[in-house]
Every structure is written in C-alpha cells, then in structure tokens.
Write a protein that binds this DNA or RNA. Structure first.
Length: 374
DNA sequence: CCCTGCGGGGATG
DNA sequence: CATCCCCGCAGGG
C-alpha cells in the first residue's frame, strides 16, 4: 500500500531480524530466539508486517514508542503488550498550508483527550477536524506487539497503515505548547490574571513581554534560526491559505458509519469562514455560539465493531473510495521548528523531519556507538 | 493535562 | 477458544 516514494529513502535496515533465519519467530511463540547476533536500531515508523529485535537498553523500545499514534489495547496477555493505531487527524476542509502541506495531526492517545481534540479546529484554516482511522489490518487498525524477553525487546507489527503519517509525538507536543502560549496571550479574560501575576512579580508594566522566547516564536515573527525556509510562521493566525471549497466529503470516515446525527450539517456550501468563529477572539457578538465547528463529532469509524460491519467485511472501501492515497512525502512538518529543548527528553531528535533521526541523538558519537553486538 | 500500562468486561466469530 | 473493542484506574511526566 504505502509503497514507492518511501522505499528509496527507507532506512537501510541492516536489521538482525531482517537476516534470514531471524525472521522465523513470531511474537506469540513460546520461545523466542535466544541468541541474537545484532539488535536493531529503533524504528520510528514501522509499517507493514515487520519484526524487529531491540536491545532491552533501548529507551524508545522500553517505552514502546512509535511515531504512529498507537494506543494500548488489552489482549489479556501481560507478557505481550499490544497497541493499535489510531490513524491521523486531518482537516475536514482538506486545506493546505502556505507551503502546500496538508494537516496531519497526531490523534491524542487518551480517549477523552481525543474527543476533545476533535472538537477543536484546524490550526491552519479553523475548519473542522476529522479523524481518519486506521484500517490497515484487514479493516482493523494496524497493531504493534511488544514483548520483553531477557536482554531483548521483540517487536512485531501487523498491517500496513492506510493513511498518512501523523505528527510525531514531539511535534504534537511542540504544537500544543505553542498553541497554549498563544491562547494564554490573547484572550482578555486570562490576560487579567496574567497581568496581575506579572505585576506582582516584577512590578513592571505588563506591556513588556515576560516570555520572549515563547512569544517570539508563537507570534508572527520569524524565529532566528530559519531552516531552508521551511518555516511557517504562526500557521494558526492565518485563516486564509487555501481552503478550497473541496470538502473531503463526509463519505470518507462517515461512509460506513452513516451516522444519522450528522446528516444535517455538511453540504451547506457555506464559506468555511462561517465556522471560523472558533478562535476569533473579538466575535462574541450575539449568540455565544456553542461549538462552532463541532457538529462533526460523529462517532466516526471509531467504534470498531459496527460502522460498516453490517454489509461486507470490515473493509469499508468500495462505497466511497474517499480514502486518499497518502501523500507519503515526509514528516508533514508544517509546524515551525521547535526551540531546541535540549536534554530532558531522550527521544531527542524527534522534532527533526528526518525519518532516521529518531533514535540517534543529535550527537554524532552516538551514531558510531556499536549496536550491541553479540 | 496527557501518556502509558493494566485488567475487567462485553460483543463477536 | 480466539479476536475485536470500551472503560476506569493508577503511576508518572
């Protein structure tokens, strides 16, 4: 499914698990290989039916990380951790950023947080957000399995993701904090509190920015370090860009679901501007406008076992082949580079768009470090 | 706040 | 038996 484009760039997996006999194991085997000649580098974007053997020292493997948004799934087996893919959150307007990138947000892992997330608006065009769920494994989400065994951590994935890559965890976190910085800056309500705090602390006039670093980034100022113009200044401030009228029609996710609830909304050809109320600060006009772009809270394809189950297999394709073939270009980095946050997080380079940068810290030495050879 | 893992429990095959 | 899934809880950043 996700072939082509990526293959060439694909990391050179000199994986242990890639070499002949090593692939013979299955995560469910009673006994897994005891002697592994070489462990794998952590794979940020495992896809298709792959297996990897990581060192039990590998931090990312220890935490069962993935750049796909994977949530824990109970398989009633404490020895094998199972996680399933949540897909990707896209803009319902199918908008593009100024540099032509699509919006692929990372679905929140926590169910509650995810629902809240879907009620929010596209950071680029303020349109509604939509969760594109993963059906890469026979109509079900792709699953990843983790198993610790001695000095190794065995990994196996089942299914091929049928959707674009979401932001990485770090990208999502970065965007969140930027967002937060912005919102806590403009709203007059919160502002009061802010000002008071500031005054009490500094006794200075609130007109001065107390948080230069954050604000400069969040504001439309171009951060000092400009990387190949890839920069997007506050992508959120501009409701303009290219929300061409083309709605990714409801079919896609709603297709099978045919959620009765959402019948009333869609096709009003309104200008997307109508729902822009989302964050418009100075538009508290008449109605408090409950939830601007929230009418699409449909259960989507979420509830695994039913949306389209009735008819044919779980694979709902066919009806409306609205599932866009993923533009698998790259990391979908529409968000401004995040200030080098230094050491706290071991998942260091996550903020880099480069696929392989994941496991390797910014420091070269680490690249040279031998990969546990036995 | 959210991520992560655990485990009970329901529904389906 | 298996596989899905949902839910709440607890620990931790």
């Amino acid at each position: 499914m996700l072939k082509g484009a990526d293959d060439s760039v694909m990391e050179q997996e000199d994986s242990a698990s890639q070499h002949g006999e090593m692939t013979s194991w299955d995560i469910n085997d009673i006994k897994l290989p005891q002697h592994v000649s070489q462990t794998d580098w952590f794979q940020e974007w495992p896809d298709s039916y792959v297996k990897h053997i990581y060192s039990s020292e590998d931090k990312n493997a220890q935490r069962h990380h993935s750049s796909w948004a994977m949530r824990n799934t109970n398989n009633h087996n404490s020895r094998i951790l199972k996680k399933s893919c949540l897909g990707v959150v896209v803009c319902g307007n199918n908008c593009s950023t100024l540099d032509g990138k699509k919006i692929y947000l990372r679905p929140a892992i926590c169910d509650k947080a995810r629902q809240k997330q879907q009620r929010k608006c596209c950071p680029n065009c303020n349109g509604p957000l939509r969760l594109l769920s993963c059906r890469g494994h026979g109509g079900y989400p792709v699953t990843n399995f983790w198993r610790h065994e001695g000095q190794f951590i065995f990994f196996q994935s089942k299914g091929a993701h049928d959707h674009p890559r979401p932001e990485t965890k770090l990208e999502a976190e970065a965007r969140r904090s930027i967002q937060k910085a912005k919102t806590s800056f403009s709203p007059s309500s919160l502002r009061q509190k802010r000002i008071q705090e500031i005054e009490s602390l500094t006794g200075a006039a609130p007109t001065q920015e107390p948080l230069p670093s954050l604000l400069s980034n969040a504001d439309a100022h171009v951060p000092p370090a400009d990387f190949r113009g890839h920069l997007r200044e506050s992508s959120q401030e501009a409701p303009l860009s290219s929300c061409s009228g083309q709605f990714a029609h409801p079919g896609a996710a709603g297709a099978a679901g045919a959620a009765p609830t959402w019948g009333r909304s869609p096709s009003l050809g309104r200008s997307p501007r109508a729902e822009g109320l989302c964050r418009v600060p100075a538009a508290p006009s008449t109605a408090p406008s409950p939830r601007p772009c929230a009418q699409h809270v449909l259960p989507v394809a979420q509830g695994g076992r039913e949306p389209f189950g009735s008819g044919g297999g779980p694979v709902g394709h066919g009806s409306c082949g609205a599932r866009s073939p993923l533009p698998h270009g790259g990391g979908c980095l529409w968000l401004p580079p995040y200030p080098p946050q230094g050491g706290p997080c071991p998942m260091a380079s996550g903020a880099q768009p480069h696929p392989q940068a994941w496991a390797s810290a910014p420091s070269l030495p680490q690249l040279l470090q031998p990969r546990h050879v036995f």
